[in-house]
Computed example of a mutant assay.
Amino acid sequence: MFIKDYISKDFPCFSLTDSIESARDTLEDFGYSHIFIKKSHHFYGAIAKDFLYEGDGILKDLEHQIERFAILEDNNIMDSIRLFYTFNANVIPVINKNEKYLGYITCEDIFQNFSRYPLFSETGAILTIETPARKYSMTEIANIVESNNSKFYGGFITSMSDEMIQITIKISNENLSSIDATFDRYDYRIVQKYYSDEKSDLFNDRFGFFQKFIEI
């Protein structure tokens, strides 16, 4: 799950002396949200697509619009999620420790990787449960599910304060009523639940989980 295993290399890194028109044409060919800029052979930053339609000239004219974000090749793909969300990007530049541009990763790359794991790929039930922060235990949550002969595929914290924590979990479809009752008995409140055993809902299921990851 390291970034270096997902790098693509066919998207160029532009210089400030390149024309806005050429950068715009390239971006339209690829359909990405940003172009990347290098300066003195080092990665310099990114410019969002919208700014390339404000006029012609050279990219130096847009230097004040450059956003500074990138990910290191030896980072984990989980590290990329916040960057996609923070910069409203569908593409992220990859650099090495010397800030040399190596290529890029896309949101689609990450989505496809996550979709292979049971948390996303298995059909089942999605529950968002709430509990006082002082008694939060993912181990206890998993035990509640498994003690009712259901499978616990995984989960993550979706909201957290000093008082309360909300956790979204993915479980198999067995014994759901019994699981609901057990959570209630252990002082967990079910905030949202989505049950499905239809294969046609699998894509929406995966995408919803991925969106929640991005919004963390």
Rank of each mutant, 00 (worst) to 15 (best):
M1V: 03
F2V: 13
K4P: 14
D5Y: 08
Y6E: 13
S8I: 00
K9I: 15
D10N: 14
C13D: 07
S15R: 01
L16T: 01
L16P: 00
D18H: 11
A23Q: 11
A23L: 08
R24P: 00
R24Q: 06
R24C: 10
T26N: 15
T26I: 14
L27I: 13
E28S: 12
Y32R: 03
S33I: 00
I35G: 06
I35R: 03
F36T: 06
S40M: 01
S40V: 00
H41D: 15
Y44A: 05
G45N: 05
A46R: 00
A48D: 13
F51M: 09
Y53C: 03
Y53F: 12
E54D: 08
G55Y: 08
D56M: 01
G57P: 08
I58N: 12
I58Y: 12
L59S: 01
L62H: 12
H64F: 15
Q65E: 15
I66V: 15
E67R: 01
A70S: 13
E73M: 04
D74G: 05
N75E: 10
N75C: 09
N75I: 00
M78G: 10
D79W: 07
S80P: 12
S80K: 11
I81C: 04
L83P: 09
L83A: 13
T86K: 14
N90Y: 07
V91E: 03
I92W: 12
I92H: 09
V94W: 12
N96H: 06
N98T: 10
E99I: 06
K100F: 13
K100E: 15
K100A: 09
K100R: 15
Y101P: 00
Y101D: 01
Y101W: 00
T106P: 09
T106S: 11
E108K: 10
E108H: 08
D109I: 03
I110W: 06
I110L: 15
F111H: 04
F114W: 03
S115M: 12
S115I: 02
S115L: 03
R116L: 15
Y117H: 14
S121H: 08
E122I: 02
E122K: 12
T123H: 08
G124P: 13
T131F: 07
T131M: 04
P132W: 02
R134W: 08
Y136D: 02
S137D: 07
S137P: 09
M138I: 04
M138Y: 04
E140S: 01
A142F: 00
A142Y: 00
A142T: 00
N143G: 04
V145T: 02
E146A: 03
S147H: 10
N148V: 02
N149D: 14
F152D: 02
F152C: 00
G155N: 01
I157N: 09
S159I: 00
M164Q: 08
T168C: 05
K170W: 05
K170Y: 09
N173Y: 05
E174V: 01
S177N: 13
S178A: 11
I179F: 04
D180T: 02
A181Y: 07
D184W: 10
D184L: 15
Y188E: 11
R189G: 01
R189H: 09
K193T: 10
Y195K: 01
Y195S: 09
S196P: 08
S196C: 08
D197E: 14
S200I: 06
S200F: 07
D201R: 05
D201I: 01
F203D: 02
D205R: 02
F213I: 15
I216V: 13
